[in-house]
Each structure stands twice: as structure tokens, then as C-alpha cells.
Design a protein around this nucleic acid. Structure first.
Lengths: 210, 210
DNA sequence: TCATATAATGACTGCTGGTCATTTTAATAG
DNA sequence: CTATTAAAATGACCAGCAGTCATTATATGA
């Protein structure tokens, strides 16, 4: 049945092409400003066709969010290979998260939208669940690093490593979010730079874990 | 000029009544689902009248955000009076933030929307600037507590207290955000409760500051 | 009582996400 | 090569929305 397979491949390919087009449009104008008509035009398809591949504009955006998580997970996987101790790996996770936010600011925005639940993932749709899986995978990388660190003594004994991982991740996301969204205000009113905030955060993490 | 004053009062009063109505509708249905027609009906006014008091739906929402900050600031001001040492006061700020998020979940959501910059405050409108001032005031309360703590020795010497305050606040917001938005997932996949996360966060803060 | 200014109205517009009857394209069979 | 069927794509269309503005109602002051 070679034809059926080819068709399935084409379908996946077209789906990805739509997400590509949606990225172009949405990253340029922002989710709420971008219109499905624009996406359709960028994809060289009619608007109706988009809805053969995605149930809604939001589901299309969720596909972009998923891409962000996949990239982030890959970066974390590769980067944590390098660390010697568990503590090193935790720091590497943080550094990599920062790197991700700088290298892929648009994808980072999608992650923040996910964390903020701007796009309700309660609906158990394929795209949502996958994003969730990827999000969980990211946390799991951090959990492993913490476990390792506790074992090799580079991290002080904590309670449950899952707790520690979630709290660390949430704190980090909070700091990065403020750095992204509010740095202009902070610079203007308090004369602080991104680097100031980050180095303070690093110092705190060291004190928390060492 | 008693009449002009009375008219100004009435204008303020009506404005507040509109925000009241908007809160009812928006807190019930959510910002994007709520419509200006619904708000108008709840306020017993025509839709056009709303636009005599607010430039847009977003500006109306910003007025609600501002209310949230005002309440939070007041709570923090009063609560921090009680603390003995600077460290105590920092902890009180955190506890009060948690209390706020539980007592006024809807207003807390507006604060998260502000932090996430869902409603662009770049436009230098009165409402935006006031929200910003209130946000800054909240941070300033924390700055003072940290300064005091460093002075009285209850907090270990940090770099710039502004840095510390922003990082602490951002971390806290990050943790509370995750608790609000993702706790169902976390409970389901990792069997952690809000209390687990919070107590871990407290422990970390203590290690950071003590 | 009339003139003026201020406040409020709601019909209207432009635009959007999403739908669906129709058309186009591709695969299959005779 | 042609007819038949299935799958894919289309775009005119719809309902609902934020926001506007000519018109109407209300209050003030002479």
C-alpha cells in the first residue's frame, strides 16, 4: 500500500508547512493580531484548508508551543551530558534555559504562554498532551540531575527531588519571565540590568543547593 | 463651583460602577469570553457609554489590574508592620502574597496577566502608569524589608537589595503561577500537592537569606 | 422659555474565526 | 482512454465581536 503511505507522508508534510507559515505570521505580529487569513496566504492555501489540519487557531498555536518544548528538551538533553556532578548538571540546565530564551526568544514566549496557561490545555487533544509530555520530560531531566547531585554529595540533601525540581524550574521561569517582560521598567525605575538579576539568581541557587 | 465638582464626582462614581460591572462579567467568564455588551448590560448602560469612560476593553481590564495591585499593596503594608526583624518581614511579604492569591484568586490572575504582560502597558496611559507605580510600590516594600534585615543581621549580606527584591518576587510569582495553573497536572503526574511545593520554596528562601 | 453644553444611546461598520456546499484533483476500474 | 468514486481544497458565507458616530435626551444658566 505505497500510496496510502505516501499520502500520510504528504499530510504530515503539509501540516508542518502550515505550522511553518503560522510561525512566520504569529512570531511577526503576535498571536492575537495574526489572522488565519494571513496564515493561509503565507501557506499558499485557502483558509478552509487550515481547518482540515487544525481544529482552531489555538490548536495551531499549540503545535508551535510543542515545537518550542521539543527544541528546549533537546538542548537540555545534550547540554547535561557534559556536567560532571549532579550540581553541575542543575546549573547547566539553568544556563541552557537562559541560552534557549536568548537564542529562540519567540519559542521562549510560547513556553511562557504555556506556563501561564494562556492557551487552555485542559482539552485532551493530541497537541496539548504532547506539549504536556514534553514539559514533563524537561522537568524529569532536572529531577535526574538533582537525584544525581544528592547521591554524589554535590547537592545538599533535599526532600523530594520532584519538589525541588518543580520549585527550581518555576523560580527560574519566573525570573526569566520578568527579565523578558519587565526589564525596560526595571532598568528605567531601578537601574538594574538583566545581568544583575541573573547573577543574583545564580548566587541564590548556589546557596539553596550547596 | 459646586456643580463642576459634583459632576466630577459623579464621573468618578460612574467610572467605578463600570469597573464593578466589568469585574462581575470578566471574573465570571474570563477576559476574552466576556463582551462589552455584557459589561454594558451589567452596568445598566449602553455600550457606547463605556467608551466615554474607557478607550478600549483592555483599558477597562487595566483598571481591574490596578485594583488588584492596590489591594495587594495595602495587605503588604499592613502585614509588614507586624514583623520584628527584616527577615521576618520578608517572610511576611511572601506569606501575604500567598494569602492574597488564595483570598482574591481573580485579582491574583490579573497580577499574573500583568507580570506576563498579556496587556501591553507600553502605551503610557494613565491606568497603565498607575498599575506600574503600584507594582513598584510592592517591590519597594520588599526592598525595605531586605535592607532592614541586612542591617539587623537577620539576613545575610546580599549585593543590591533591589536585585534581591526583584529576584525574590519573580521567583515567588513563578512558583505561585505554577501552583495556580499547573497544579492539576503536577498532582496527576507527579503526586505533589501545593503544600509540598510551597514548603520546599520556603525552605529554599530560608537557605538563600539566612 | 429658550439656548447651550454635556451625557448617553444604539444602529451601524469592518473585521474575525470558523463552516460548509461546491469544485478540483487524484486514484481506481472497466 | 474514459467513467466513477474518493479525497482534498476552496472561498463565499455567517455569527459575533470591538469600536464608532450621528442622533437624542438631560441638565444648566440666562
Amino acid at each position: 500500500m505505497g500510496i496510502a503511505e505516501r499520502k500520510a507522508r504528504e499530510r504530515v508534510h503539509r501540516r508542518n508547512a502550515i505550522v511553518d507559515a503560522a510561525e512566520d505570521v504569529i512570531f511577526k505580529h503576535g498571536f492575537s493580531v495574526a489572522t488565519m487569513a494571513q496564515v493561509a496566504k503565507a501557506a499558499e492555501l485557502s483558509k478552509g484548508t487550515l481547518y482540515l489540519y487544525f481544529k482552531s487557531k489555538e490548536e495551531l498555536y499549540r503545535a508551535i508551543i510543542l515545537r518550542g518544548f521539543v527544541i528546549l528538551k533537546k538542548m537540555l538533553r545534550e547540554a547535561t551530558k557534559e556536567g560532571k556532578t549532579g550540581y553541575d548538571k542543575v546549573i547547566i540546565v539553568g544556563k541552557t534555559y537562559v541560552e534557549f530564551s536568548e537564542k529562540y526568544p519567540n519559542y521562549f514566549t510560547t513556553i511562557l504562554d504555556y506556563e501561564n496557561d494562556t492557551f487552555n490545555l485542559a482539552a485532551a487533544e493530541a497537541e496539548s498532551l504532547q506539549a504536556l509530555e514534553e514539559g514533563n520530560a524537561v522537568i524529569t531531566i532536572l529531577v535526574r540531575a538533582i537525584r544525581e547531585g544528592v547521591k554524589d554529595g554535590s547537592i545538599i540533601e533535599q526532600g523530594n527531588p520532584f519538589d525541588t525540581a518543580f520549585v527550581l524550574w518555576s523560580q527560574f521561569t519566573g525570573v526569566l519571565q520578568v527579565m523578558k517582560r519587565k526589564i525596560n521598567i526595571i532598568e528605567h525605575y531601578f537601574s538594574l540590568t538583566k545581568e544583575d538579576l541573573l547573577s543574583t539568581h545564580w548566587r541564590m541557587i548556589e546557596r539553596m543547593l550547596k
